[in-house]
Design a protein around this nucleic acid. Structure first.
Lengths: 246, 246
DNA sequence: TAAATAGTGTCTTTAAGACAATATCTA
DNA sequence: TAGATATTGTCTTAAAGACACTATTTA
């Protein structure tokens, strides 16, 4: 019986021809976020090839099934190429696949967003991109982006904002060490509203993901305590969302 | 100038050959959930082809770029084929792509979960599936599922459970009309724990997505009010999660 | 009337909101 | 000392938890 199955299976492998199905093309696009000048920015590339030549797009590209072991590998490879950063916070958002997003053919794109501390980023241009730039989030809606990147970027932003209401995700935008006021400012930039200082510090303290470094930051006025993320710390999920309107 | 660009673009289109890239195969897999006999069940199909012949798998299949306009179309087509249901609640969960999940080649699978009221489901076997069955969630971990469907199903379940803690998602598992106790029971089955009756009714009342039908259900004891979902109702998001341990 | 299920009243608890008060620095 | 920023104290509020109590049915 087992013998029979094996023969049958061998025959199957012999007959199998992967090229018999028409396949869609498969890409990965990443919204790479960072904070610059007290504003949320996303990394965009100006295409130097058709389609959508000269228009701006998210960082992305086709899966290279020779180089990439997984989808996330593709995202990381592109990210490394453009920013030099190896291991940022990376979260998958949504996969869009249809026959209208690319004029050439049926395509699929899986989108991610990445969070980078603004320190130590060296941008690199390269093949397929004549220009690479940090675009202010406040201005992306007035730019005519390539493919459906307007939609994808909106979804990535919505995810980032929604999760910032009940998790410690934004710590991934912070440098090695930082003050409470700096962290609160990042939350406020993402959410687009101010937060009660006392509530904020209580939440972060309860999450138990930070520790004081012992250093103080000289701010010109009263110095502020420096914090860093604990070694074992994972993203913390609160049981209530931030609701303040102030 | 515009003229020049047009010529350049036309040349590009002439040269373009979509078959020049090696593409991964692209599938959609859906965890179709329903409640039967006071337990959460998922629809599984026993494969009658290699690879993973005779093993159980989620409902899914390759994108058919002739038939399907979008990824969601693929999910809906497969769901209709197997259950006869047209428009269930459908939510995308995660896309997995790598060179290990399928022994044949680099493949990508986008997973969804669907919620079906247990009424009016007529299962259909068909090509590629010798057997189709509702499997109890309490037993799926002891079954050796095809591909990485163990992982995918776990992710779908986690999403369903997590969202049931702070949304009205589970109403999509209910029939046309139902009682509060019945709805609470569905929540308890999904979450695997009991909920304070008073808290539960307060939450649902506040969400303002239900209305009384005016009918009463004869339960043998005190009759219960029937409710139905309001026409305009969307999934409601609460600002706090259910925390009770009782 | 007892048993069972449906449904409500109400006190407690938790964590956020509001905002005032205090602390520590520089000019 | 005034001004600015950091940090804490504390009262209020919103919504969940706990649990007892009432309501309505059948046997």
């Amino acid at each position: 019986m087992r013998e029979t199955n094996n023969k049958e299976e061998k025959q199957f492998w012999k007959d199998y021809d992967p090229s018999q199905f028409k396949k869609p093309s498969m890409a990965v696009d990443t919204a790479i976020f960072t904070i610059l000048d007290s504003e949320l920015h996303v990394l965009m590339i100006q295409r130097d090839e058709h389609p959508f030549k000269d228009q701006w797009s998210l960082v992305g590209g086709y899966i290279d099934i020779e180089k990439d072991h997984s989808l996330e590998d593709t995202a990381k490879r592109k990210l490394k190429e453009k920013t030099g950063v190896d291991t940022p916070y990376l979260e998958q958002v949504e996969t869009v696949g249809n026959n209208t997003r690319d004029p050439r053919e049926w395509t699929v794109s899986t989108s991610y967003f990445a969070l980078l501390p603004s320190e130590n980023i060296r941008l690199k241009s390269g093949k397929g991109a004549s220009n690479i730039e940090w675009i202010k989030i406040s201005s992306y809606q007035s730019i005519d982006l390539a493919f459906d990147h307007q939609y994808i970027l909106t979804k990535c932003l919505e995810r980032l904002k929604a999760k910032s209401l009940y998790t410690t995700l934004p710590i991934n935008l912070m440098p090695e060490s930082f003050t409470m006021s700096e962290l609160q400012r990042i939350y406020e930039i993402i959410l687009g509203k101010t937060i009660q200082q006392k509530s904020f510090r209580r939440r972060i303290k309860n999450s138990d993901i930070l520790m004081e470094t012992g250093e103080m930051k000289a701010t010109g006025k009263r110095p502020a305590a420096f914090y860093k993320i604990k070694e074992e710390a994972q993203t913390h999920f609160f049981t209530r969302t931030i609701e303040s309107l102030s």
